[in-house]
């Protein structure tokens, strides 16, 4: 059986996690009509530079990057089906919701919010599955 799993090329140089960070990962993988994205962080999509900021600013950057990534492979933000929203501290739950809702205003994806440490001192990471 041939592989029905397809890796998605990074849509811009900064989102090439392997090249920028040396991480052994693909930006996203498509299988069975779903797109499984790597954990998305607040990084400059052109340069790969980390954009440390507030939960609000980091979430905005992440959604901009997700938009680039998903639209590059025929999907879009409104095709997201599941999100694990990781935040560095539970106390920012409402802050996350305020900015998050702007990017998924209608029929939003299923979501679970987890609070945990995030690499490089960033405050937000989104783990996303979208319909292709």
């Amino acid at each position: 059986m041939t592989s029905l799993r397809e890796t998605i090329l990074p849509p811009s140089p900064g989102l090439d996690f392997a090249a920028v960070f040396g991480h052994h990962q693909s930006a996203a993988v498509r299988a069975g009509g779903l797109i499984f994205c790597s954990g998305m962080l607040a990084i400059d999509p052109a340069t790969g530079e980390r954009r440390h900021g507030t939960v609000t600013s980091e979430t905005r950057q992440i959604f901009e990057n997700l938009k680039l990534l998903l639209e590059s492979c025929g999907s879009s933000l409104d095709r997201i089906v599941q999100v694990h929203a990781l935040i560095y501290d539970r106390i920012e739950y409402d802050v996350l919701n305020r900015v998050y809702r702007q990017y998924v205003p209608n029929a939003p994806p299923a979501r679970t919010v987890w609070s945990c440490q995030i690499e490089a001192g960033l405050k937000v990471q989104l783990d996303v599955i979208a319909a292709a």
Binding site: G33, L34, V81, V83, R101, P108, P109, A110, R111, T112
Partner: peptide, 23 residues
């Protein structure tokens, strides 16, 4: 819960044969 408390998620989303349920 999401409708009652105006949270930005849906109870669950189906895509194809899979259903993803929110926490």
């Amino acid at each position: 819960v999401s409708a009652r408390q105006a949270r930005p998620h849906s109870p669950c989303v189906r895509a194809g044969d899979y259903v993803f349920v929110s926490g």
